[in-house]
């Protein structure tokens, strides 16, 4: 496995980039929340910024949304270099905040009417409510909405000004699987319409399913970036075998496959280079001991594995 330091942020072609960031920095006291971050987001793509809590991704995104002022660095948004994101840029941005909220005593349709007044142009509220499946809740007070409904309202507000670039921070948080897939469809449609989406998410499968480009951030820095497939291939021809094994047998298995095993309770993840040979060896080892490898699963490396390998932590830690 290659070291995280082997990967350097790659700035894409400036012509196609809707957003380019160079050496962005933000410090709070002695804490370097954002420590020289550089990346580029190409028009018409879905870009994902991944990182554990405290990695600095929210600060980065909030600088790009115009909610925070960077200490230094260069931001090029819609082809224009800016020291901070101001009203002219915000009019072309759509934002869904992780910790954003709406006035609890306003109706859903009133929230959309209120936000339309902040933009020079806006889409019809009824169209957006239909898009996110909230038409029946148009007259409901925000305080009566469920968490998932509030999240869909936040998405509707983010789309209100027909933005060229959408910042979505945990857009499917709190949604049931069906609603989550519905949002994914909306995002794919937006990409097909040429919109650019900047996504931060805790859901690896979401990043994998949607992203054209992924940046992984930790301790204020970008430690890896690439397409999900490229990042997964950094493990070479490795394959992962997952199963459940009673804990007392774990040390014996580790002796059989040194350095290739990660365990979380009874859940075991085995990284193998030659699937046929290693899987056969594993099954023989279990048979010799009369063990049943419950919930056996063979899969390719995913972003979660990349993330774990690079940061030593799971995304939700």
């Amino acid at each position: 496995m290659s070291s995280p330091r082997d990967l350097r942020p790659t700035l894409h072609s400036p012509v196609a980039s809707v957003l380019r960031v160079r050496d962005l920095r933000k410090t709070y006291g002695s804490v370097r929340a954002v420590d020289g971050v550089s990346f580029a987001v190409e028009r018409g793509t879905i870009f994902s910024l991944l990182g554990p809590n405290g990695a600095g991704k929210t600060t980065t995104v909030e600088i790009l949304e115009g909610l925070r002022i960077p200490d230094s660095g260069e931001i090029e948004l819609f082809g224009e270099k800016v020291t901070r994101v101001g009203p002219a840029q915000k009019a072309r941005l759509g934002v869904l905040l992780q910790e954003g909220a709406f006035e609890p005593y306003l109706q859903v349709r009133e929230v959309l009417a209120l936000f339309s007044a902040f933009f020079p142009k806006s889409r019809p509220p009824a169209e957006l409510l239909a898009l996110v499946g909230l038409t029946e809740k148009a007259k409901a007070l925000v305080r009566t909405l469920s968490g998932g409904q509030k999240q869909r309202l936040a998405l509707a507000v983010a789309l209100l000004n027909d933005p060229e670039l959408l910042f979505l921070d945990e857009p499917t948080s709190g949604l049931d699987p069906q609603a989550r897939h519905h949002v994914w469809d909306i995002l794919r449609d937006l990409r097909a319409q040429g919109k650019t989406i900047f996504l931060t998410t805790h859901y690896m499968e979401e990043a994998e399913a949607l992203s054209d480009w992924v940046c992984i951030m930790d301790h204020g820095r970008i430690i890896a970036e690439g397409t999900p497939r490229d990042l997964g291939s950094r493990f070479g021809p490795a394959t992962f075998v997952e199963f459940e094994l009673p804990s007392p047998f774990l040390s014996a298995l580790s002796g059989r496959f040194p350095g290739k095993i990660r365990a979380d309770g009874e859940h075991v993840l085995l990284e193998v280079q030659d699937l046929t040979q290693d899987l056969s060896a594993l099954l023989s080892w279990a048979a010799e001991r009369g063990l049943s490898l419950r919930n056996l699963l063979v899969r390719q490396p995913n972003l979660e594995d990349v993330f774990l390998a690079l940061t030593g932590r799971r995304l939700r830690d």
């Binding site: 909610l67 009019a91 954003g100 909220a101 709406f102 006035e103 902040f118």
Partner: peptide, 11 residues
């Protein structure tokens, strides 16, 4: 967080 959301617009 209501104001945070407001000021993510050109307001």
């Amino acid at each position: 967080g209501v104001l945070r959301r407001y000021f993510a617009t050109p307001l």
